[in-house]
């Protein structure tokens, strides 16, 4: 069994606060943060940055057959969201009326449980949108 606690911990800034980075040279935001700016290479200047909490839906789906750990959550909506600074995230969409989930719809980040934990493991928290 994989010990997921250290992996989750390492990603808390991303999962809790949407912390990514930004290249001051080409003005592009990256989420998750990148080790090197793919546009500017060594001329890039990456600085850590929290992404905006709002964005719009670029594409979405409703998942009926879930992977392990999500059995009791299905069906659920998944979407690709373009944040206000252009960075994109894939996230679940929760607490929204189905007719409001469409391409172009504005969404906002919320803090939720992600995978359903087993009875003994750590609980995974992170971003979802609504």
């Amino acid at each position: 069994m994989q010990n997921i606690a250290p992996l989750n911990w390492r990603r808390f800034p991303e999962r809790y606060l949407l912390r990514g980075n930004y290249c001051e040279n080409c003005k592009q935001a990256f989420f998750p943060p990148r080790a090197i700016c793919p546009n500017c290479r060594r001329k890039g200047k990456l600085v850590s940055m929290e992404m905006p909490r709002t964005g719009k839906i670029i594409s979405y789906t409703k998942v009926y057959v879930p992977p392990e750990g999500f059995k009791n959550e299905a069906p659920y909506y998944l979407a690709i969201i373009e944040l206000e600074n252009g960075a994109r995230v894939l996230s679940q969409i929760v607490d929204s009326e189905p007719e409001k989930i469409k391409i172009g719809a504005k969404v906002k980040k919320v803090f939720r449980r992600i995978a359903e934990p087993d009875k003994y493991g750590t609980i995974t928290y992170g971003y979802k949108f609504w």
Binding site: E73, F111, R113, E116
Partner: peptide
């Protein structure tokens, strides 16, 4: 609370 909410997630949302 929905199944993906708990006292912790609600606390964060209230404080936010």
């Amino acid at each position: 609370a929905a199944s993906d909410e708990d006292s912790c997630t609600m606390a964060v949302e209230a404080a936010r």
